[in-house]
Write a protein that binds this DNA or RNA. Structure first.
Lengths: 340, 340
DNA sequence: ATGAAAGCGCTAACAT
DNA sequence: ATGTTAGCGCTTTCAT
């Protein structure tokens, strides 16, 4: 009702041309103060607000950013990581007056169906896309469509795309070094899904720390997980017979699974087994025991992702931007540092 | 690059008018098969896809639905409920070829700033809005703007708006009745945030069950929480001195807090204290002990929300739709039923 | 079956 | 400072 108003009607009621009305609407110069005043009056009174679609068509951008979360999105909403990421991105969108479009690409068919909408510059000004599994061609396809793009996470292939990531290698390295410093020598790891660069990088950091401190790498101490709780549980059970005294776990959610396995085995943390996790999202601090874990700044990660994207929108995408955020080891109880 | 294509160019290349090109693009009749074929050729070859914004302006709707999550959104992304809700909604949007816009209204200023965009029929075809705190005027304001709307959760005021909710009273009633059946007579509750209809309704169900089974209501056995972990922890501590033998907790996340308090107090679950939660999201089954809890079909909740909205879009919003989904008590270990 | 022309609601040269 | 005019890229009457 209050919405069928058009700029033309506002102009008429104010006794000016549509152009002038547009000028005051957009706070542009070259309008006599009194006229401006009058038009503003009308706008107020009528509660007019311009049709965003019409404006978008005229100015050739929509002020809408897309966030696309590819495959494996069942994990997506089981891990507290993604909600926080979304929150950071949404927050930044608000701050910069952009609207956020959310695209969950659960199946290949969905991906096919959605691709045109996503790739068309008409609807979305740009895209933030969560990096998928290794081998996923989505980013490459989007890239050749020439859509402004920033990837959340390090892409597997070396392609000229902008991305933001956390220093996973360094984070894992910190975690494991800490364990070594505490005197552990048989340190295992529960990895994330290894078709993922994040998991690969964290394993690399684990290996690096061991190697640099002269500790042997032992295959039996590396158990594959996939970032969810059950996989942490199973991996822990698999590790137990090999008698590690400490484990670096590639995500906090998997730590919860590991804790469950340990408790069933009658083992205490950190007395019988030291644990360091990865993420430091809200549940970590309230765990029993509170988790020593590698903090990643997920909120800021999301915010910066949109800032990079906006920068690209303004200044073009060459050269590709690369941003690596630092992690920080948060020491709580699960590593046993307090009694060291 | 591949995107500057317009329908006009397609038409030219195919040697037809723009009108005809549009017809084949939209699978409309009145095109000679051979011509249709030819146009389709060109579309394929060029990889043309129509500009959604231009189309939206012409047909006067965008195929974009908005999901708005008001205030208290810090809770929003700490509780696994919302991610799942979002997933359900996103899924349904995909299925129905709609795009999902996400609006996080964290502060009153953001709400003010975003309102025009949200309320304008130009951008969004319709809205799903998570019910806010009691007293929140957002829904009322949107309603008078005449935006197609469905509320997720029961609004506090009696207003003629469509909504979908879960039967919170019945869910809580089931939970508490179960505890009574197990022989408990001193049953406490940890409520959700009481400025919320969901929390209020669950408390009502708790009271109803007690009353109908001839058990006294005792103020000291009702501890206020706010749906997050810490509040569950504190509420549990507050309850302990009053010696309940069982607690109905208004959300699983608060159960985790309660478990933490109990474990610190050296009490076992369910032997020393029986617990029933609410939600039954993924973490519930993997808890230690696995949680007896009231299952709500969150995914379906989200899906149906969009279906109601689409129905409204097609058939108008009178009368307002009201959908109440059933809950189901899932019996696991935390209530002690197995040894009863 | 096909096309010309008008229109969706706005912005932006360009002229005055 | 203001208005005229021409788009933005599509759909949709209305003729033919």
């Amino acid at each position: 009702m209050t919405d069928k108003l058009t700029l033309d009607e506002i102009a008429q009621r104010a006794g000016v041309s549509r152009t002038t009305a547009s000028r005051v609407l957009n706070n542009r110069p070259n309008v006599r103060p009194e006229v401006r005043e009058r038009v503003q009056q009308v706008i107020e009174e009528t509660g007019y607000s311009p049709n965003p679609v019409a404006r978008s068509l005229a100015i050739q951008h929509t002020h809408i950013l897309g966030l696309v979360l590819p495959r494996r999105s069942d994990t997506v909403f089981t891990d507290p990581y993604f909600p926080v990421l979304i929150q950071g991105i949404a927050q930044a969108c608000n701050d910069h007056e952009y609207t956020l479009g959310l695209f969950l690409l659960q199946t290949p068919e969905e991906e096919r169906k959605l691709l045109p909408r996503i790739a068309h510059k008409g609807l979305l000004d740009g895209l933030i896309i969560q990096v998928g599994e290794i081998g996923d061609q989505l980013i490459a396809r989007l890239l050749e469509k020439n859509v402004p793009l920033v990837v959340a996470g390090r892409p597997a292939q070396e392609i000229p795309v902008s991305y933001i990531d956390v220093d996973n290698v360094a984070g894992a390295y910190q975690a494991v070094s800490h364990l070594i410093r505490l005197g552990h020598t048989r340190i295992g790891t529960i990895t994330g899904a290894l078709n993922t660069t994040a998991a690969l990088d964290r394993r690399t950091g684990y290996e690096q720390a061991l190697r640099e401190h002269g500790l042997p790498l032992e295959d039996a101490l590396v158990a594959p997980g996939n970032f969810n709780e059950s996989s942490g549980y199973q991996a822990m059970q698999q590790l137990l017979p090999h008698r590690p005294t400490a484990i670096f776990v590639a995500s906090d959610v998997m730590v919860f699974g590991a804790l469950r396995a340990l408790s069933e085995a009658g083992l205490r943390v950190p007395e019988d087994m030291a644990l360091v996790g990865y993420d430091d999202l809200p549940p970590a601090a309230n765990a029993a025991p509170p988790l020593t874990t590698v903090h990643q700044p997920v909120l800021r990660f999301g915010e910066q992702a949109v800032e990079i994207l906006l920068d690209i929108l303004e200044n073009g995408s060459v050269p590709p931007r690369r941003v690596i955020l630092d992690t920080e080891l948060i020491i709580r109880d699960s590593c046993g540092a307090s009694q060291a």
